[in-house]
C-alpha cells in the first residue's frame, strides 16, 4: 500500500520540452517534415493570395471602372454620390469582414498543421 517511490528530480518531459520535440520531423529535414511544412506554407500563402486577389477585383477595379465610365459617379444612393458611399463608408466594414475571415482561416490552417505534427497519420509515418 505505502510503497516507497524514489523521487529523482523534476519530470524531464515538461510540456514545453514535449512540444519542442513535436517539431522534430520538421526541423530535421526528414521527407515527412518537408511535406508538413510545405503543406502549411502552401495553405497559408494560398489563403493570402486569395484574399489579395479579392481585394484587387473589388477595390482594385474601382479607379478603372470610374475612369472608363465617369457617369457612374453621378449615381446617388441615400443622397450620397456612389464613390463617397463606396470609398468613404462601405469600404471600412468590408475590409474588417475580410480581415476577420482571414483570421479564422489562418488559425484553422495552423490547427490542422499542429494536429498533423502531434499525431501523424499511420500511413505517413513509415
Amino acid at each position: 500500500m505505502n510503497e516507497r517511490v524514489r523521487v529523482t528530480g523534476p519530470p524531464r518531459h515538461t510540456p514545453a520540452g514535449r512540444a519542442a520535440s513535436r517539431l522534430g520531423d520538421v526541423h530535421e529535414q526528414t521527407a515527412l517534415g518537408d511535406v508538413y511544412l510545405r503543406s502549411l506554407l502552401r495553405a497559408q500563402i494560398g489563403l493570402a493570395a486569395r484574399l489579395l486577389a479579392l481585394l484587387a477585383v473589388t477595390l482594385g477595379v474601382l479607379p478603372l471602372a470610374f475612369h472608363l465610365a465617369p457617369s457612374l459617379a453621378d449615381i446617388r444612393l441615400l443622397g450620397i454620390p456612389l464613390p463617397w458611399l463606396l470609398l468613404g463608408v462601405l469600404v471600412h466594414p468590408f475590409l474588417l469582414l475580410l480581415a476577420w475571415r482571414y483570421l479564422r482561416s489562418a488559425e484553422r490552417n495552423e490547427r490542422v498543421f499542429a494536429d498533423l505534427v502531434a499525431d501523424p497519420p499511420d500511413e505517413d509515418a513509415t
Binding site: L51, L87, H92, L95, Y102
Partner: peptide
C-alpha cells in the same frame, strides 16, 4: 475630391495586406 479618398482607404487597407502577409 473623391480621388483623395484613396489616402484613408489605402492607409486602412495597408493593414489588411500586412495582416495576410507579415503580421504573425
Amino acid at each position: 475630391g473623391a480621388d483623395m479618398l484613396w489616402y484613408p482607404v489605402g492607409w486602412t487597407a495597408g493593414y489588411v495586406v500586412l495582416l495576410v502577409l507579415v503580421a504573425a
